[in-house]
Simulated assay, not measured.
Amino acid sequence: MLIETGKVVAVESDGLWVETISRSTCGSCAAQKGCGQSLLAKLAGHTTYLWVSLGGRNSADYQVGDDIELGVPEAVVANGSLLVYLLPLITLLGFTLAASELGWGEGATTLAGLFGLVAGGALVRWRAHVTRHDSRLQPVLVDDQQVVSVS
Rank of each mutant, 00 (worst) to 15 (best):
G80F: 00
S22T: 13
M1N: 05
V76N: 05
Q145F: 13
V52F: 06
V130R: 11
G56V: 02
S149N: 10
E4W: 06
A122L: 14
G34L: 10
Q146H: 15
R132V: 11
C26G: 07
Y62W: 11
Y85A: 05
G103P: 01
D67F: 13
Q145D: 14
W17Y: 09
Q37C: 08
L137S: 00
V124K: 05
N79F: 10
W17N: 05
G45A: 09
I68F: 07
S151D: 09
R132D: 10
C26I: 06
L97M: 11
L40T: 08
L117T: 10
T47P: 00
V72W: 02
G15C: 02
G6R: 00
R57F: 02
S53W: 02
A78L: 15
V8R: 03
V77M: 10
L50W: 12
D66N: 15
I3N: 10
G56C: 04
W104C: 03
A60N: 09
W17H: 09
G94S: 06
Q145A: 14
G56R: 03
E101I: 11
Q145C: 11
T5R: 12
V72P: 00
A112C: 11
C35I: 09
F115R: 00
A98P: 00
L97I: 15
L89G: 08
H129D: 14
S151A: 10
G34C: 09
L89C: 09
L97A: 12
G94H: 02
S13K: 13
G103W: 02
L16H: 03
L82I: 08
V142D: 04
D66T: 04
H133R: 13
A44C: 05
L2H: 12
L102T: 00
W126N: 13
L70D: 07
V77W: 06
M1D: 06
G36L: 05
P73W: 04
L40C: 10
V76R: 00
R127H: 14
V11T: 07
F95S: 07
G34Y: 09
A10Q: 13
L93A: 13
D144F: 03
V9A: 01
S149C: 04
Y49F: 13
S22R: 15
V18T: 03
V118S: 10
L141T: 04
V150Q: 14
E19P: 00
T5C: 01
